[in-house]
């Protein structure tokens, strides 16, 4: 079996590491070897964050190379463009329709990219926008937006069973929030 590579991108504090560790646990639950890698330290200070999950029969490198990601999950709209070159030509891109404006806009003179600007780079790519904040508010807890996003990509990862994801969520989130996170994941599956 070929190794599957998934890239999570976004901003420090968005729960990217948590979401990728739930996925990694689900891979283990389904009997795969798995590697997860991110760099922390400076990253938590509002910087851009990337996390890689790779699974398969035997996985060596914990990092993902350009043009090899099967799936990219971008937690923030503009961050999509930083990582889009990592997607395989037949990969899938999920974009959270959410903006975090960096302070650098105050001095670089750049403007935050419009949705149409982002889409202009996605002509040959299979992609989907989800407003996960809105979806999470429907469930009554804005904090589970990242579990919804995980549900959306879970549909695309056929080799990992839904049960493996459910079990991983139960193991990874505080016990009081398990039910809400399971609901959020299932909502993501239906989107």
């Amino acid at each position: 079996m070929k190794t599957t590579s998934i890239l999570f991108a976004g901003i420090g504090g968005q729960g990217i590491i948590k979401a990728s560790s739930i996925l990694a646990t689900a891979c283990l639950n389904s009997g795969f070897d798995v590697k997860q890698s991110e760099v922390h330290g400076m990253a938590q200070r509002g910087g851009s964050v990337v996390s890689f999950v790779r699974f398969g029969e035997k996985v060596y490198s914990p990092t993902v190379e350009q043009k090899t990601a099967d799936i990219i999950l971008s937690f923030e709209k503009s961050e999509t463009l930083r990582w889009i070159d990592y997607l395989k030509s037949d990969g899938f891109l999920l974009i959270n329709d959410y903006e975090i404006r960096p302070t650098s806009l105050n001095y670089t003179g750049k403007t935050y990219p419009e949705r149409s600007t982002v889409e202009s780079y996605l002509k040959e790519i299979e992609y989907k926008f989800v407003n996960s904040t809105e979806e999470a508010l429907k469930l009554g807890d804005v904090r589970v937006f990242n579990t919804i996003l995980l549900g959306v990509i879970a549909k695309k990862i056929e080799s990992i069973s839904i049960e493996s994801f459910h079990k991983a969520i139960e193991l990874s989130v505080p016990s009081k929030t398990i039910q809400m996170n399971l609901k959020a994941f299932d909502l993501g599956l239906s989107l």
Binding site: G46, G47, L81, P102, L105, T108, P113
Partner: peptide
């Protein structure tokens, strides 16, 4: 189109 997001003070 790629925004600078260097680490910043909180």
């Amino acid at each position: 189109h790629i925004l600078e997001r260097p680490p910043v003070l909180c």
